[in-house]
Computed example of a mutant assay.
Amino acid sequence: MRSKDKVLGALYGQAIGDAMGMPTELWPIQKIRSKFGNNITEFLDGTADNDIAINFKAGEYTDDTNQAFAILDALIETNWNPNTKVLVRHIMKWADEVGAWTNNILGPSSKVALKLVKEGKDPHEVTKTALTNGCGMRISPIGTLFEPNQLDMLVKMVYEVTKITHSSDVAISGASMIAGAVTAAMADQNWDEIISYACKANDEGFKLGAPTWAAHNKNRLMIGINLAKKYKNQDDQFSQAIYETVGTGTMVSESIPSALAIAYYARDVKKCAILCTNLGGDTDTIGAMATAICGAKNGANSIPSNWITLINKRNPQHNIDKFADEILNFKA
């Protein structure tokens, strides 16, 4: 059974991982260590030398969570029946409001696809080759809508909301993997079962996307899971192995397997968010995905209350509690 505590856990997990990972976004590990030292453990302002994070203050989440919640707003407007025009309208409204076109806030695939839509052009030639992780960064709330026995409906919903900017096999499968992990975590499956269900969702999603040459998410995830087992209780060694072996860049086949492996290793919202911001690479996006899974598993009651208070205070544009109520009213 889906519960409000677990829905809130997923939503706040998404927001927390995103906001905590923001200051180090797209920096190599050497630069993070030089700037912030060995271990960031709290929310920080973006700094002037990070041309993406410069736009944000401590506790503010980025395009990952803003797009996730824009998608929720769009689905609520259409009574949970995905409508491409409405989905695009809500994301474009957010993008226009924050100056995403000029402030280096949108990811590369989303920016090109939405720009074509804005110009009245068909973005399919771009979306079918999209290999970057905008597909996964905003998808975790979709996982809160379904039970594990509704895999087909889950993957269909993932496809409908993802194809507006990403319609490649690796993108649809990766987004399905993240949403599937959230669904299984919401159902309180154990961590090995969560990974198994995420892989099933990945396989179903892969069938729906346009063929690409990208590495398969599931295969790379298995590498990450093996690293999590090898370096159990060795945070620094595990993080370094993920960074150097699976990869933490913006490609779907790096960041999504890494996010799932980190969630599997951390198993806790606070630990997961801290690991991700100190990781190097696409820290906010990996944080959003990984920490959402941990939040879905453990619920909002497992999250430090001051973290939730800060997220609410710094992001007044959204009412996360109201989103949770709307999600619980959804019937597949």
Rank of each mutant, 00 (worst) to 15 (best):
N103W: 12
D49H: 03
S109E: 10
G120Q: 07
E119H: 11
P28G: 13
K85G: 05
K111P: 08
V117D: 07
S34N: 08
N39Y: 14
L75F: 04
L75K: 01
I32E: 03
W101P: 00
I76R: 00
S110N: 07
E77P: 10
D96A: 01
L44R: 12
N39M: 11
T65P: 00
N83T: 10
R89F: 05
E42R: 13
S109H: 06
L72V: 11
L44K: 12
D49V: 14
Q30M: 11
N38K: 11
A70G: 06
T78S: 08
R89W: 15
T47C: 06
F43I: 15
N55M: 03
I29V: 07
V98N: 00
F36Q: 11
L72K: 12
F56N: 01
A70V: 09
P82T: 03
H90P: 10
N104C: 08
I40Q: 01
T41G: 05
V112M: 12
I32Y: 09
G37A: 14
N83R: 11
N55L: 02
V86K: 03
H90V: 09
A74E: 02
V88D: 10
F56Y: 09
T78K: 08
A70H: 09
A70F: 09
L72R: 07
N38I: 09
W80G: 04
P108R: 03
N83H: 08
M92T: 06
S34R: 15
G37I: 08
E60S: 03
K115S: 07
D73L: 10
F36R: 04
G37W: 08
G46W: 02
I105H: 06
N104T: 04
I52L: 14
E77T: 09
